[in-house]
Design a protein around this nucleic acid. Structure first.
Lengths: 138, 138
DNA sequence: ACCCTACCTTAGACATTGTCTAAGTCAACA
DNA sequence: TGTTGACTTAGACAATGTCTAAGGTAGGGT
């Protein structure tokens, strides 16, 4: 994560206490928090941080390619700090838990030219859906 | 589409004017409207139809498996009446247009057991992203 | 043909998530 | 250490979706 802060400094980001706290909350490669969850955790570390700043900071991190935005369910977007290793998501339909997964094969290659309708295709997202062990039990 | 209405009657759906109009708007296999767009088109056919009824009806059609709900961007969900032929989506990042596409291979098969973390995986969605010919030109 | 009644529809309040604005604050450079 | 433009703030606003209580009606039963 200090790598992240270093990269951001290189890009002339002002290192404010608020931005540091958001980065700290996102630390760890396997969290998929919503903006509200990030705000709640940030407030625990820096009580006066505002919702707007959390949204601003997340938006900037996404624009810089340091964090991925995932909307798996039309509810709140989730933010995925694991932006530097290609992966896909496995989502529990019941509790919303997300796991990072690594399918075999190149998903982009599976779309033949005749199915591209003149689009310039730049990316692909694969979302597997199911029940996590916990929810399957109930 | 009369098939749809027939199937719904078989399931003891009350065929109200409102539900007929929503079904009519969804007619055609390649539309991907938002709830608001569906409401606007429904109002043109039946001025007194309410927003709540459109939401209710769409929710029921989704629960019955007659319509798919797609949220490609964290904005408004879109409703896809092409629920009976497996397909994936190609989305224009600029204007939001969606095309139905048919990739080769079985996307579910690409997730090895060691990457399933005990989940019972029941489905997979593939979303290709890019620019449509129109937006690419600009 | 006409009642019933359970199911459907309605308007509008409310909830959730996200965006914007105007004023105040502060990180970084000189 | 002073200056300045980028950053942060509270709260209003916007977009989308859900809920409620009251009234309407489709369709079965007669």
């Amino acid at each position: 994560m200090s790598d992240l802060l270093a990269r951001l400094r290189d890009r002339h980001w002002r290192l404010t206490a608020q931005r540091r706290v958001v980065a700290q909350v996102l630390d760890g490669d396997h969290v998929h928090f919503t903006a509200d969850e990030i705000h709640a955790r940030a407030v625990a570390l820096l009580p006066e941080i505002s919702r707007a700043t959390v949204y601003n900071t997340l938006g900037e991190l996404v624009a810089l390619g340091e964090v991925l935005e995932v909307s798996t369910d039309g509810r709140a977007k989730r933010y995925d700090p694991n932006a530097h290793h290609a992966h896909q998501h496995l989502v529990c339909e019941s509790c919303g838990t997300i796991r990072d997964v690594h399918p075999s094969g190149d998903p982009l290659g599976s779309l033949p030219a005749t199915e591209r309708y003149g689009f310039s295709v730049s990316g692909v997202e694969v979302t597997y859906r199911g029940l996590c062990p916990n929810c399957a039990q109930k």
